[in-house]
Design a protein around this nucleic acid. Structure first.
Lengths: 142, 142
DNA sequence: CTCTTATTAAGACTAAGTCTGAATAAGGAT
DNA sequence: ATCCTTATTCAGACTTAGTCTTAATAAGAG
């Protein structure tokens, strides 16, 4: 899990990739994100802050940042994939109201352990997971 | 959970909707699906079997079939949403290899119970969930 | 059988994500 | 420092899952 610019430099060079200005802008901009973001949100925030980077560059570098553990895939709507800065909080999953789209974050160590057990039983090396509980919140049930 | 044509008729009329030929073709075609399918797969299978229905009709009716519990959302790739006929097997989740895209199905009652507990704690009425464990299978780890 | 209105098909449209090709710049070699 | 190779970037074209529009059709009530 890469935590800062220095570690990122090591990580990126270790892969034989180049440490470009855009990549530094990207990790800077992502650290500034609070909460969930999708690619368009990220690009327009970067732009506002004078850290212009093309949409394509974001798409190209996201897999690297995911691999480095600096960004985590958070959840998906029918339209979009949302991410979040891994440093902002620990890992967690989401409870989503299909009525008002309210999102509640939760952690459950027991579930995580079960997931590891299931992966092991099937000889998988678990890298990450996506767990979304969909339902109706108190208000939306009326 | 709607199980057959008769129950479906009751369900659809209960909603004040019409029992159309297309809807019958749809549930017929879905019952014939084995395993996972996305909208395009479903449309072309229906076509092959002489049950022509437009793509749009499928998209329009999927929420109804989900609500009726005849179809379940199965998992999503970066491109597509996959479904499956709810009757074919019981509910289960997926372990997906990001290398070869192999999919392993699993059930875990303990996780299901935890999910219910989490929903209850947050005053949500849980309708369904999406749990995908992503990693590398034995072969793809080399 | 007639009338109302939900539903349908066809195709235009939207937008997330990918691809292409030319220009740029990182980093090693000299 | 300067040159050279090649990964990376940008801009914009492209692909395609999913949505919307409109006119035609047909389900169901009376």
């Amino acid at each position: 899990m890469v935590k800062n610019k220095k570690e990122f430099e090591g990580f990126i060079r270790g892969k034989g990739c180049r440490l470009t200005g855009e990549r530094l802008k990207l990790i800077e901009g992502i650290k500034r994100q609070r909460g969930h973001f999708n690619v368009d949100i990220l690009v327009s925030c970067l732009k506002k802050q004078g850290l212009k980077v093309s949409r394509d560059t974001v798409y190209r570098n996201l897999p690297i940042l995911l691999e480095a553990g600096m960004v985590a895939q958070s959840f998906r709507t029918s339209r979009d994939t949302y991410y979040e800065c891994a440093r902002s909080k620990g890992h967690h999953d989401h409870l989503i109201c299909r009525g008002c789209e309210k999102i509640v974050e939760f952690k459950d160590p027991a579930i995580e352990r079960s997931q590891q057990r299931i992966a092991k039983k099937n000889a998988f090396k678990l890298e990450h997971h996506c767990q979304q509980l969909i339902g109706l919140c108190e208000k939306c049930r009326k």
